[in-house]
């Protein structure tokens, strides 16, 4: 029973973690992209369509990543090259993504999906309990863990990561030091788009192997909240994503078990929990300020 619940939580948390990791990188470079929901749904439709037409869910995963990244390029061009307002552009990206994906996916509604099958790792998966939970998962779950380790290393251990954080904290100074702000931000935005697309692929290939319009159903927004929740630190995204997933799944089980608490309250619980943790985290103003990229959301025009 516990194992079953845990497996459900992991499926629910994985897309949140992946999309939030991408957004974290973009925000660390100083770009606030509110278009996560739009990029995610584009990834979902590209992944489903490709997997359905080629029969290969792995090509679907690639298409999801590509679709999300390509879509984020539009955001990059508008906000970085044309220096439009990031908040407004991000919102527009979400609305556009929901519309375009609906159009693209129209002929795929109701078709049987291709599920990404789990990859069982020999030996390790034979460990009782842990083996089945951790080492008999699908590719995207493994990628989500690799992402956290990789991003954490990149941001805090690599030279490029240091430069990127410098841009996020003060793009003027970084520019003066000779760091190419716009190019780095383009790459960060692209990475964010690729991650959102991968998260979308998880939705339409693993979570529920089907295509339904608006199937991301607000998960992009939760991913955005997770980044703040995690105060821009990779490992906290893992904790936040799984906490959110656990409360979401836990409330469904509580209902099925018949605990007699109103279901509306239980449904609000994950969000209430998020608010409580945010309040606790932001209690110490100084550490919050230290973690927040100081140039977040501010437009940058290189003075020549």
């Amino acid at each position: 029973m516990f194992e079953a619940i845990l497996l459900t939580v992991m499926t629910a948390a994985t897309p949140l973690v992946i999309a939030a990791m991408g957004e974290l990188v973009a925000e660390r470079s100083g770009v606030l992209n509110l278009g996560v929901e739009g990029m995610m749904i584009m990834g979902a439709v590209c992944a489903f369509a490709t997997a359905h037409m080629t029969g290969s869910p792995y090509l679907g995963v690639l298409a999801g990543i590509g679709g999300g990244a390509l879509f984020s390029l539009l955001f990059g061009f508008l906000t970085l090259t044309l220096v439009t307002n990031q908040v407004a552009t991000g919102l527009a990206l979400t609305i556009l993504g929901l519309g375009v994906s609906g159009q693209l996916g129209e002929s795929f509604v109701g078709l049987a999906g291709t599920k990404l099958q789990p990859i069982t790792i020999p030996v390790l998966s034979d460990i009782p309990f842990i083996g089945r939970v951790l080492f008999a998962q699908d590719l995207i779950f493994y990628l989500s863990i690799a992402l956290i380790i990789g991003v954490n290393w990149f941001l805090f251990k690599s030279r490029t990561g240091l430069k990127m954080r410098a841009i996020g904290d003060n793009h003027g100074s970084a520019h003066a030091l000779g760091i190419n702000v716009v190019r780095t931000r383009y790459l960060a935005v692209l990475f964010g788009g690729a991650c959102a697309g991968l998260a979308g692929a998880q939705l339409s290939l693993v979570y529920t192997p089907q295509w339904v319009e608006n199937m991301s159903a607000g998960r992009g927004w939760i991913a955005l909240a997770l980044v703040v929740f995690a105060s821009w630190r990779p490992w906290r995204i893992l904790a936040g994503g799984y906490l959110f997933g656990a409360v979401t799944i836990g409330q469904l089980h509580a209902q099925a078990f018949g605990v007699g608490i109103p279901s509306q309250f239980l449904s609000a619980l994950p969000y209430a929990a998020t608010i409580v943790v945010l309040v606790i985290i932001s209690h110490n103003r100084r550490t919050t300020l230290i973690n927040t990229p100081a140039s977040l959301g501010k437009p940058f025009v290189p003075d020549r």
């Binding site: 459900t8 629910a12 939705l203 339904v212 608006n214 199937m215 159903a217 998960r219 469904l252």
Partner: peptide
């Protein structure tokens, strides 16, 4: 309509 949530339920 939220396939993920319906599946979780």
């Amino acid at each position: 309509a939220d396939p993920g949530k319906e599946a979780d339920a």
